[in-house]
Simulated assay, not measured.
Amino acid sequence: MAAPDVFSPYRLGPVRLRNRTVKAATFEGRTPHGQVTDELIDYHLAPARGGIGLTTVAYLAVAPEGRTHAEQIVVGPASAAGLARLADAVHATGARIAGQVGHAGPVANGRSNGVPAVAASAMPSPMSMQMIRTASERDLTRITRAYVTTARTLVGAGFDVLELHMAHSYLISSFLAPGLNRRRDRWGGGFAARAKLARQVARAVREEVGDEVAVTAKVSCGDGFPGGVTTDEGIGLARMLEADGTVDALQLSGGSSLMNPMYLFRGDAPRREFAEAMPTIVKWAMRSPLGSTFLKSYPFQEAYFRERALRFRDAVDLPLMFLGGVNDVATMRQAMADGFEMVAMGRAVLREPDLVARLASGRARRGICIHCNRCMPTIYSGTRCTEWAPEEVIAVPAPG
């Protein structure tokens, strides 16, 4: 059987997408008061008008202590109207919109948020220089309910897809990782116990929304640090979610925002630029030898998670989104031939918002992103490509 065309329509659960391309969640840095802004809408309109099938709004927190920092959106009555305005704007282009639903756990900056961060187990926070406390039973019940109310709010706002964040050492991921979860209660120990929170949240959200929207999960195909989620454990989680029937697809990611962020991004490590964007004490640490320990260098190569992702493809029948170094139309077509249903792109469409339309029309064969990763430190001032020049991108009408 011939592989499907990556630019052909696709049905993700109950949602029809105009093609199989996804704008991956990349923190936008455009919500200074925790509210949707015109700048945030414009950020998502650019790839939507540029042909992407599904654009993903990053890091929509389910609770105040679940933000990475105070400028992040907490989904609730105060943010619902703005989120609806954002969804309406994206829909007008013919694209669909996903909300990345999550709780930052140990990645949260408790000092910025004004609320102590929580995680599977207590640990020091490199961001706030505070202690992160162990999540209690009461916390986990409250947070699970918060996922449910967040899901309902996003459905009411017109979102088409809910992406449950289960990777990058966020709260759910901190439970999955044996190096971060040292609990001796029912939430710790073997992998089945460490996966309980992930399954509980997915089940609660699915029971709330039914088939009104698609539900997906971002899972790790390898965290890249000792004690992180391994490929085998990621596959184990994928099998559990498939058996539970709670998600419509998985997005395969990797790395840890807390322990090894460059494992996800690959390419140049922008240590100097990150140091300039950080508070003084963190700036000092970034300029010391610790900086190279945190921001390690991994050579960029196209489709760098392919080998690990193929193991997931062999293990589960769930639809899978291929992510990691997708810049070339040949890579996208190879992903289809490998049996993946969708491809997710981040930096490539940040550099060229209309890349998908130009690839689909044959006017381009690959993106021009150089993977310098200097976009990463701009998350604190409005995520953008620092190499981008307006003359490089020609706006085109988005396909219907």
Rank of each mutant, 00 (worst) to 15 (best):
V393E: 14
R311S: 07
R183P: 03
N181M: 07
F175S: 08
A398W: 09
P116I: 13
E341Y: 11
V107S: 08
K218N: 05
E65T: 06
R182I: 07
P106D: 14
A119N: 08
H91I: 12
A243T: 08
L264H: 10
A177F: 03
G114K: 02
Y147E: 07
D42Y: 09
R11C: 01
R272E: 13
Q251N: 00
A122K: 04
A243K: 09
Q251V: 00
I368V: 13
W388C: 02
P14D: 13
H103M: 11
T93W: 11
H371E: 15
R85T: 11
R142P: 04
G29S: 04
A357W: 06
I379P: 00
R199P: 00
A2S: 02
P399S: 11
A348W: 09
D211W: 11
F340H: 07
A80S: 06
F27A: 08
Y59L: 01
S128Q: 01
F312S: 03
M131T: 08
G34M: 08
M1P: 00
A87K: 02
L310S: 01
Q200V: 03
E137D: 05
R311V: 06
R194F: 06
K218S: 07
R133K: 15
P397T: 15
A360Q: 14
C221S: 14
M123S: 10
T216N: 03
S257I: 06
T93H: 09
V118M: 05
N181D: 10
P124I: 03
S169I: 05
T386C: 00
D232W: 08
Q35E: 06
F322Y: 12
G82I: 04
T216W: 04
I143N: 07
Y263P: 02
Q334I: 03
A61T: 06
Q130L: 13
E302R: 09
R365T: 15
K218M: 05
T378I: 08
A360S: 14
T55S: 13
G267P: 02
G53N: 11
N113S: 13
L180Q: 07
A3Y: 05
D328A: 06
R374W: 07
D139Q: 08
K23G: 06
R96N: 15
T134P: 09
G51V: 12
Y304S: 08
A61D: 10
S220V: 10
R287H: 12
S173W: 05
V247G: 00
Q100E: 14
A81W: 02
T150K: 07
Y10D: 11
G291P: 00
G210I: 12
G102L: 03
G156I: 09
I73Y: 04
P289F: 13
S79Q: 02
Q72W: 14
P126G: 06
L83D: 12
E212H: 03
S220Q: 08
A198V: 00
S220L: 09
S79N: 02
D185F: 12
Q35W: 01
C369G: 14
E233P: 05
I132H: 05
G339L: 06
A151P: 04
T383I: 04
I370M: 12
E137I: 01
V393D: 12
N109L: 10
E387I: 00
P178N: 13
P47G: 07
R363Q: 13
L40A: 10
G179T: 11
N109D: 15
A151M: 07
A48Q: 14
A2Q: 01
E207T: 14
F7N: 11
G105W: 10
A46D: 14
T293M: 15
V215D: 07
D354F: 12
Y170V: 01
F175N: 06
A78N: 09
R266D: 10
A48N: 14
V396G: 01
